[in-house]
Amino acid sequence: MTEPANVIERVERESVLLTRVGSRSYALPLAGVVECFRPLSVEAVAGAPPFLLGLSVVRGEPVPVVDLAVLMGNGGVPPGRYVLARLGERRVALAVEEVVGVCKLDADVLRDLPPLLRSADAEAVTAVGVRDDQLLFLLRPARVVPDDLWRTLAPGRGQA
């Protein structure tokens, strides 16, 4: 309870979609989650960063697929599920190993990230905790895909 309360309170009793990649759990706020499904066929994009697997057609539209394992630095885990996240008008598919389910996170399991972890690469993570003896990262989907990447992917719809 020494951490700033604003973050904790914001996520208190928030319903999240709990996913797992390797030994880590990632929680996505349900408000930004559309649905989940098995990996679809993906088209690689030239010049894309390593965490971007490519583009998949989801619900009739091209959606960039981000490998959360690569993005979060524990690569080498084959994706088992895509989670379709909603970023305003944009959508992004996050490749995870497994979707555990929907749950509510208690505030006391979450802490703000230690200052050392707050790097540019880790902008996507807002909080960290321990659940079932596993590290739990609370993601902020809006920060998962850098803005310039959006522009690269869909120039026509970049700032829609």
Binding site: F37, R38, V58
Partner: peptide
């Protein structure tokens, strides 16, 4: 079944 099911996510709503 797997293909048909997965295809429902690729197809437009």
């Amino acid at each position: 079944m797997r293909r048909a099911f997965d295809q429902t996510f690729a197809a437009p709503e």
